[in-house]
Amino acid sequence: MAVKEESHRARQAQATKEQVARAARELFAEQGYVATTIAAISEAARIPAQTIYSAFGNKAAILKEISRIWIVEAETRRLAQESLAIKDPAERLRSAAHWQTRQFETGIDVIRIYQEAARVDQQIAGQLARMLKAREQELEIFLNSFKGQLKPKALDLFIACTAAEIYRTLVLDRHWPIEDYERWLADTLVTQLIR
C-alpha cells in the first residue's frame, strides 16, 4: 500500500511540475524570461508560489523542465535513431531535415527563451552551452554513420544549415509554410553534405 501511495504522490508531483512548466513557458515566450516572476507563474499555473519554490527552487530549474518536456514531445531522439536505419544517404539526410524541422516547430520558443535567459543568468548560459555541446556530439555520431559518403566539414555544414536563426527568418519572419522550410532544408543538406 505504501508503494502505491508513493507512486501516486510522485505522479502528482510530476503533474504539478509539468503544469508549472507549461504556464511558465507561455509567460516566458510572451513577456520574456527576465520579466516573468514566480508570482506570475504561480497565478498562471494556479499553483501556490511556495509549491513552485519547493518543486523547483528557481526559474532556471523551471526552464530545464520546459526543455525536458519539449524534447520528449518533439520525439527527435526517436526520429534520429530511426533515420540511422535508412541506407540511402540522401534519404537519411531528408529524414534528418524532418526531425530537425520538428524540433524547431515544437520548440523555437524554448530556444528563444534559453537565448534570452543565457544573457543574464550564468547558470542558464552553462546549461545552454552543455545542451549545444550534447547536440553537436549526437550529430557527430549521426554523420559518422555515413562512413565517408559526406564532404569534409559535414558537421560544420549541418550546424550552419540548421541554425535556429535561419528557421526564424524563413518560417516566422518570411512566413514560409513549414513544409517549404523542411523541403528547403532537406535539399540544402543533400546538396551541401553529400560528396
Score class of each variant (00 low, 15 high):
residue 76 T to F: 14
residue 132 L to E: 15
residue 107 G to T: 09
residue 6 E to V: 12
residue 17 K to P: 01
residue 2 A to D: 15
residue 103 Q to G: 15
residue 118 A to E: 00
residue 194 I to Y: 05
residue 97 A to Y: 01
residue 187 D to C: 09
residue 138 E to V: 14
residue 120 V to G: 06
residue 114 Y to T: 08
residue 119 R to L: 04
residue 88 D to Q: 11
residue 56 F to W: 02
residue 49 A to T: 04
residue 180 D to R: 15
residue 123 Q to D: 08
residue 3 V to T: 12
residue 110 V to Q: 04
residue 64 K to T: 12
residue 137 Q to G: 03
residue 125 A to E: 10
residue 14 Q to V: 09
residue 186 A to H: 02
residue 39 A to S: 09
residue 191 T to Q: 15
residue 79 L to S: 06
residue 2 A to L: 08
residue 65 E to M: 14
residue 154 A to E: 03
residue 17 K to Q: 09
residue 104 F to V: 10
residue 102 R to F: 14
residue 29 A to E: 07
residue 107 G to N: 05
residue 100 Q to N: 15
residue 161 C to V: 13
residue 57 G to L: 03
residue 64 K to D: 10
residue 26 E to T: 03
residue 166 I to G: 01
residue 164 A to L: 13
residue 107 G to D: 08
residue 76 T to W: 08
residue 133 K to F: 13
residue 156 D to C: 11
residue 76 T to S: 10
residue 23 A to Y: 00
residue 163 A to K: 06
residue 187 D to E: 10
residue 135 R to L: 04
residue 51 T to N: 08
residue 47 I to W: 00
residue 138 E to T: 01
residue 92 R to E: 00
residue 125 A to F: 00
residue 66 I to A: 00
residue 131 M to G: 15
residue 107 G to S: 04
residue 22 R to L: 06
residue 125 A to T: 03
residue 152 P to K: 05
residue 167 Y to Q: 07
residue 130 R to A: 09
residue 24 A to Q: 03
residue 136 E to T: 08
residue 114 Y to P: 00
residue 119 R to W: 08
residue 52 I to T: 03
residue 134 A to S: 12
residue 83 S to A: 09
residue 37 T to C: 01
